[in-house]
Design a protein around this nucleic acid. Structure first.
Lengths: 110, 110
DNA sequence: TCCATAGTTCGACAACGATCGAACCATAGA
DNA sequence: TCTATGGTTCGATCGTTGTCGAACTATGGA
């Protein structure tokens, strides 16, 4: 099962994780991925250039937030929720919880 | 009781907060402030130039993370933990929890 | 009134990060 | 073997952010 290397649990750095999350596009990717469970890049891109998105996926991978499983041509991405919870307890829950609240706000205010 | 303006609770933005936290110096300020409760700038600066630190305090204030109460010449800073908890439940707890774990690691690995 | 203290503002510079086109690579299918 | 697909890599550009000295402001004390 080929895949991109993901950093070890103990090497995850809080600053790096926060920086990775502190970008609207990447936070959006994380949000969608949480809803989808697993998705290839195309499903998360929208209309942006591939090179831009590849950059954001790289940042998310290197920070340890997501894992990429390569299957043929497709790259299947998923959040490393369990590892993140073990390393930074409560962090992703608070981020994703707020995302859910944000979605709710947007839905009900239209 | 003069003070710097702090943004309203509902105006706090997750991206902005994450960006403010995703800097080593600012995360360190937040860490110390959590331990101290309230402190003036001098107690949090270390040996860095005042203008640099003033910048970081500004970022933390504008993101809504800290509140500055002005008393005479001194500026007393404190984390807005209650507001942050109300707006982004669990976020600061996870950040500060990890900081505590980080301190522990540093202390025991020396 | 003069000076020290505590912090802000300004301006310049450097470093970093986001963006995106173009070229590239690997796999799958015809 | 040829081509399409799904992503990566490279390199350039550009806006943002961190850094820091110098000047400035405001308060309090002598």
């Amino acid at each position: 099962m080929p895949c991109h290397d993901s950093p070890d649990l103990e090497k995850l750095d809080l600053i790096t994780v926060l920086r990775a999350l502190a970008d609207p596009i990447r936070l959006d990717i994380v949000q969608r991925l949480y809803g989808l469970g697993e998705a290839n890049c195309a499903a998360l891109i929208g209309s942006r250039p591939k090179s831009s998105m590849s950059h954001h996926f790289q940042v998310l991978r290197e920070s340890g937030i997501l894992h990429t499983r390569i299957e043929g041509v497709q790259h299947h991405n998923s959040l490393r929720l369990q590892e993140l919870e073990a390393r930074f307890p409560g962090l992703m829950a608070s981020i994703l919880g707020n995302i859910e609240a944000g979605q709710l706000r947007r839905q009900t205010s239209s």
